[in-house]
Every structure is written in structure tokens, then in C-alpha cells.
Write a protein that binds this DNA or RNA. Structure first.
Length: 441
DNA sequence: CGAGTTTGACCCGCGC
DNA sequence: GCGCGGGTCAAACTCG
């Protein structure tokens, strides 16, 4: 295997069939704010006002979670109540404006689950499916009394907003402190009314249900005030596990799906666990890269310098087999994007190269095109021959910058392998949405 | 037949 | 106290 030494453009990729392994240069882009629930911009970011996350511009940027990719010391200094931090400079609201989103029509059963298999790599070809991209997550820790939640009519400072009915994000204090002696909830058996940690993920998706690896039973659906979209209630089907979630579309941005989890699973997910992924990827990527920091050059265990990793043929196959149902994430749009970019990006279906020998579909790699500094995904191959399928690249065209501004998100795009965890405890970290929550203190 | 969904009824907190 | 809205229950229903 040789190191990558030159940039290979996307048109080259289909020709890369006969290679033992791939070395992927991942282009970190410090110039762009990160756009994923799995990532948070390097602190402090002059590009994004973490506090003013109260309208459509937050889509793709409402980073309230922290990955271990970052030195997150700034986060603890940030006061969500006042919206201030000594470590954060003044920010502007001019960055990362998303183009208009297509309007979804409410359906009779908008929260009806779709099968996991429909969330595979072919979703890029499916009509109406724009993307599945976690663009934000909101943690509400009701146990220690602090948290963040959606409220109506107030912004993140708790100030009254205009009366457009938009929901805002607000730090809330609730829970078990010495507040108001309110009439206690009527306790039902098993203390069902006890408040637990809630975390809301916002996912930009045309799907009404995202497979998160756990099994759920729907137990209710309610219309929501000021929203054409109902909220669906689900309970984890595992006996003894009281975790619930509810799903609704964000009325102001119908493409945003809000998934709120309540509670913590007492069991491993019945589906593919991240531990397996991590084993493979750890083997493939080797130590060090998983914790790589932005703009840092490290060496992985395969002797590949730089922000790279390599997967052997077997590893690729294993990885693909384990990621048949992963959610691919649409790249977020940069400030440079325009509507045409947005539209074009989804009209381009990936070339599906199915290996004739093993019939394993290739991974789809979402990436940007040229004309942007440090935005190229360079795929360089070693010389050895093999039969595994190539990486599949969706080339979105000029002026469209993908969201893979961090290594972790790149991996996310690559196959749903989430490396931006808040723990290195692989036994408890299954790589699912719920596992990527950093409790707020 | 079991598992999951649908859907109207019911419960509860909260604001007025 | 009343009504509203969110959350839950559970019987009926659907599906494999």
C-alpha cells in the first residue's frame, strides 16, 4: 500500500476497481462551520452564533452536542441562559443560510415507519427523499434541572419573539431542584410519570421515521397545535426498557424531523451494534485517527500519514455488510450554495456499482466537487488488485460543499459509522443517536 | 396468533 | 373551575 500523494478526482473512482485497499484523504476544512450533530465547530467559531439558533438558519448548525473530536473546553464556559461566553467572540448571523427547502405535504400518517431497508444507500434515488442528516440535537436533562428544549415564542435567551409561532430553543430549568411546590403528578405504577432525560435530534429528511437500531412500538399519535404534522409516540419494545421517543415534523421547516428520546436503554440494540462497527473500523483505521483533531496530522496504525484511513478488501466487505441499512447524510450546504446547487445536488443519483462477484453494493460517498479549497475528497489507491467494489461518489457539482468538514462526519457519510462519541467505552456505546449525547451539566 | 398500528377516550398539568 | 394541549391507554384493527 502506498501513501496518497496526489489528488484523485471523482471521475477517477469508477476505475479504481482493482485495488487492494483504499486510502482516503479526508479534507478537514477549518474555514467552514461543522454541520452535524456529530460535530461541533472548533472553538471559538466566528462563523456561527451559537446563541442565535432560532430560525431556519440554524439548520445544519445547531451544534449543542460535542464530540470527542474537539477540545470542548469552551463549551463548559458557555452560558446557555445568557448566551454569552468569555471564550466566544461576537458572531454574525450571516453564515450558513440554507436555501429554501422543498415543502412537504402533511400525510394521513406522516409518522408511519418505513422499513429499515428503505434507509439504505439507494435512498438517493428515491423520489421525495432529499436527505437524512442530523443537523442538530438538543439535550434536555430533566434530572439535574438544566437543559435545552423547544419552546414557543421565545428565543434562546428566553425573550419573547415575534408571534410567528416558530419554536425556539431555550435553556430551561426544571426538575428536581427546590422549585415550586406544585401538585405532584399522580403517581402511576412504576413511576411512569417520572421525568427523565430528553434529547431531541433534528434530522433533515424526507423520511418520517428513521431507523435508530432499536425496536419501537407506537402507542399514540396526537395532532400538535400550530402544526399540520402530528406527533407520534413510541416505546421501546424491549421488556423492562422504558425508553420512549416521539417523532414529529418541525412545522416551520417540514423537512426537519424532530426525534425526541426519553430515557436510557437498558440493553443493547437488537440490530447491528456500533461496537461491531468500531471493531472493524478500529482495525481499519487504527488508533489515533478516531480521536483526530481538526487540522492535525496524525499517523494511523497502517503507516499512512495524514488524515487518511485505509480499509482492506475484507474490511470493506464487512463494513458494507454491516451498513446495509445505514442512513446516508446529505451534505449540508455552505454559504456559497445557491438554490441551483441545492436542487442539482439531489438530482444526481449515485452510480451504483455492484460487484459481480459478491453482489455487494458499494459505499456511497457524498462529496463536493472542485473549486473549493480543501473540499476535495481524494481517493488514492494502492497497487494491489482486488475484487471489492469501489467507493461510490456523488458529485454534487460546483459551489456545493459537503458537510464532511470533520473526519467523523466523513465517516458518517461513508457508512453511518459515527465516531464522534462522548465515550470510548465501546461496550456501552452503540453508535446510535442516543449514544452521542453529551449530558449537559 | 402474535406483534404492531390506529384512534377515540381518558388523564393530567397549566394558564386564565 | 374550566378549557386547552400534551401524553397515555386500550380496544379494535391490520399484517405477516
Amino acid at each position: 500500500m502506498e501513501n496518497s500523494s496526489a489528488s484523485a478526482f471523482f471521475d477517477d473512482i469508477p476505475n479504481n476497481m482493482n485495488q487492494e485497499s483504499y486510502i482516503v484523504d479526508f479534507p478537514f476544512s477549518p474555514a467552514l462551520p461543522s454541520c452535524s450533530v456529530f460535530d461541533i465547530p472548533p472553538p471559538p467559531s466566528p462563523l456561527f452564533d451559537y446563541h442565535n439558533v432560532n430560525d431556519a438558519s440554524f439548520a445544519g448548525n445547531m451544534d449543542l452536542l460535542i464530540s470527542d473530536d474537539f477540545d470542548n473546553s469552551w463549551f463548559s464556559n458557555y452560558n446557555f441562559e445568557t448566551g454569552t461566553s468569555e471564550s466566544l467572540p461576537a458572531a454574525t448571523q450571516t453564515d450558513m443560510q440554507l436555501p429554501p427547502l422543498p415543502v412537504l405535504s402533511p400525510t394521513a400518517n406522516p409518522a408511519a415507519p418505513v422499513s429499515g431497508s428503505s434507509l439504505n444507500t439507494s435512498l438517493w434515488n428515491e423520489a421525495g427523499v432529499v436527505a437524512n442528516k442530523p443537523v442538530a440535537a438538543v439535550a434536555e436533562n430533566a434530572e439535574n434541572g438544566d437543559g435545552v428544549k423547544f419552546v414557543e415564542g421565545k428565543n434562546a435567551r428566553g425573550e419573547a419573539e415575534d408571534s410567528d409561532g416558530d419554536r425556539r430553543i431555550q435553556v430551561v430549568e426544571n426538575g428536581n431542584d427546590q422549585t415550586p411546590a406544585k401538585k405532584p403528578l399522580k403517581q402511576k405504577k412504576n413511576d411512569k410519570k417520572k421525568k427523565r432525560t430528553r434529547v431531541t435530534f433534528m434530522t433533515e429528511t424526507g423520511f418520517d421515521y428513521l431507523d435508530d437500531g432499536y425496536r419501537w412500538r407506537k402507542y399514540g399519535q396526537k395532532p400538535i397545535k400550530n402544526s399540520p404534522f402530528p406527533r407520534s409516540y413510541y416505546r421501546c419494545t424491549t421488556r423492562g426498557c422504558g425508553v420512549k421517543k416521539h417523532i414529529e415534523r418541525y412545522a416551520a421547516e417540514p423537512l426537519l424531523l424532530l426525534t425526541t428520546y426519553e430515557g436510557k436503554h437498558t440493553h443493547l440494540p437488537p440490530k447491528v451494534t456500533r461496537a461491531t462497527h468500531l471493531e472493524i473500523m478500529n482495525d481499519a483505521i487504527a488508533d489515533g485517527v478516531r480521536k483526530i483533531h481538526h487540522n492535525q496530522i496524525k499517523t494511523n496504525g497502517l503507516g499512512v500519514a495524514g488524515n487518511q484511513f485505509a480499509m482492506s478488501q475484507l474490511q470493506q466487505q464487512q463494513f458494507q455488510n454491516l451498513n446495509q441499512n445505514v442512513i446516508l447524510h446529505r451534505p449540508a450546504l455552505s454559504p456559497l450554495s445557491n438554490n441551483n446547487d441545492y436542487n442539482n445536488s439531489f438530482n444526481i443519483a449515485p452510480t451504483v456499482n455492484v460487484n459481480s462477484a459478491n453482489n455487494i453494493p458499494p459505499l456511497n460517498v457524498v462529496n463536493s466537487s472542485s473549486n473549493h479549497n480543501s473540499q476535495l475528497l481524494n481517493v488514492v489507491n494502492s497497487s494491489a488488485a482486488h475484487n471489492s467494489p469501489p467507493l461510490n461518489v456523488v458529485n454534487s457539482g460546483d459551489k456545493f460543499i459537503n458537510s464532511s468538514t470533520t473526519f467523523s462526519e466523513f465517516l458518517q457519510n461513508l457508512g453511518g459509522c459515527n465516531f464522534s462519541m462522548f465515550t470510548d467505552d465501546l461496550t456501552s456505546n452503540n453508535g446510535l443517536l442516543q449514544d452521542m449525547i453529551m449530558p449537559m451539566k
